[in-house]
Amino acid sequence: MPPPCFRVLVGVKRVVDYAVKVRITPDHSGVDTANLKTSMNPFCELAVEAAVQLRERLGPERVPEIVAASVGPTACQETLRTALAMGVDRAVLVNTDAAPVSDSKAGSALQPEPLDVARTLAALQSRLQSNLILLGKQAIDDDSNQTGQLLAGILNWSQGTFLSKIEAEKEQDLLQVDREVDEGIERLRLRLPSVLTCDLRLNKPRYITLPNLMRAKTKPIETLSTSDLGVALRTYWQIVRVDEPPARRQVTMLKTVDELVAKLQQLGVLDRA
């Protein structure tokens, strides 16, 4: 019996670049994302790198296909190109331009929510027949940290979250993974099919080389709509108000402990001796 294959699906999200300073919209309904530089969510980069490394370690026979998928507007193609340049074979864009997230109040600027993304990826999985789904543990824009867990629940697959290490066992459909939990490292053995979400220390994403960047232009990006997959994007949340974090107040540097004590007493924090 030949060793089991890993047919990998990697979910990537297009987010506002981490180096960009964002602004809140005047009506406090969200973040003004118009004309901001976007890039692939850094945790998704880790997932792509993990998939490519898996193939490098196991060989193309055991990892015959790596597909990257993104759910979002047409501009997500750019993000998928990045994944293709990193070594993914082909990409699928589930385009939400035609059927944006329906919301009575805020309009079309909303992103698909984790539950719908998970449903979309589940529908995509049944098309692609993947048996391993790699995701970032969370996106740096909404910090939801839900998609992977929801997806594993929908598919009823094993799940490994916050991974710092992924190892495939020889000749078996087992994965040994290390999770970063509060107490330390938790080592799990998972049976395929699995959903894995990647944490920061899993790997260091490779830099894209120019030949690969140019080769990525010739790799296919398939575009599907949400209706092709039988998914309707809805809103389950209501964003009440978005505010900037409170600005830091003016800080005074004090030189000695005595000064500090005097100041605290003056403010009424400390009792006078």
């Binding site: 670049d17 180096a19 960009v20 530089k37 750019e78 190109r81 340049a85 830099y207 894209i208 080389t209 120019l210 960047l213 232009k217």
Partner: peptide, 30 residues
């Protein structure tokens, strides 16, 4: 920060198409 360039504005409408800015971003990140 490896992401931005000043005075990109003079190129945006002319030579800096998406292929070239992709190339430049790649080299810049490296």
């Amino acid at each position: 920060d490896g992401r931005h360039t000043h005075a990109d504005e003079v190129l945006l409408g002319t030579v800096l198409d998406s292929d070239r800015s992709g190339l430049r971003n790649t080299v810049r990140a490296f």
